[in-house]
Nucleic acid binder design. Structure first.
Length: 215
DNA sequence: ATCCCGAGGG
DNA sequence: CCCTCTGGAT
């Protein structure tokens, strides 16, 4: 008798297994202060953190404050951001973000989700990730990895990130959502990849309804 | 729904 | 070749 997986993995068990697998999970974008992390997160859209980390040393050396970015020459930004995807949009985005910080937040990065999403180019995912990884908050940041895991674990059938967030967050104590976000992102990058997930070495294989369905 | 971006993998 | 990579704006 082959054992059948439930069609929905138990949330608490999943979180426990992920926490054991990634006890020190944190964002792997290189940044030493909230401004740097905010910039790095904006640059990370549809781009690996490794690629973001390849351009931020020069970026962070050349520009130190929000005012520096706001006054930056667009062509200089585009040149530095060349290796990341969407470099023209992101050069504009960096300037727009910095301008908003200078004009409305005294050059500082605000700490609430509401304030953060009021900044151009900062959406809900980016705001949540920043709050979780820099300000000690707890929220679910639904990026491509979190969405993929949630679907494979049977936690949602939605495709819209906001709907995924609502359905998944309802399965957890709010205080756990930050840890879920950070561990799920790492697991998505390292094991539960989009193309060929490594179900054979996945700590969740025993509870995942999608385990082994990918060859 | 489409656009932005291009390297890298399968 | 097609898909993916820590989205967000139009």
């Amino acid at each position: 008798m082959p054992s059948r997986q439930p069609d929905r993995a138990d949330p608490e068990i999943v979180l426990r297994l992920l926490t054991e697998a990634y006890p020190d999970a944190r964002v792997e974008l290189a940044a030493s202060n909230p401004l740097e992390l905010l910039i790095a997160i904006v640059l990370s859209a549809q781009t690996t953190d490794e690629r973001v980390n390849s351009v931020t040393p020069e970026l962070f050396t050349r520009y130190r404050t929000a005012a520096d970015y706001a006054a930056a020459d667009l062509a200089d930004l585009e040149r530095i951001l060349g290796p990341v995807g969407y470099y023209r949009q992101k050069a504009k985005a960096v300037k727009a973000v910095a301008t908003a910080l200078v004009e409305r937040f005294d050059g500082e990065v605000p700490r609430t989700v509401e304030e953060l999403v009021s900044i151009p180019w900062v959406g809900r995912k980016s705001a949540h990730l920043l709050v979780v990884s820099m300000f000690g908050g707890s929220a679910l940041a639904v990026d491509t990895h979190v969405k993929r895991l949630a679907k494979r674990l049977g936690w949602t059938t939605q495709d819209d990130a906001d709907k995924v967030e609502a359905e998944v967050a309802a399965l957890f104590d709010p205080a756990e959502l930050g840890r879920l976000t950070l561990t799920a992102i790492l697991h998505g990058r390292r094991v539960c990849t989009a193309r060929r997930p490594a179900c054979g070495s996945c700590v969740l294989a025993g509870v995942c309804p999608s385990a082994g369905q990918f060859g």
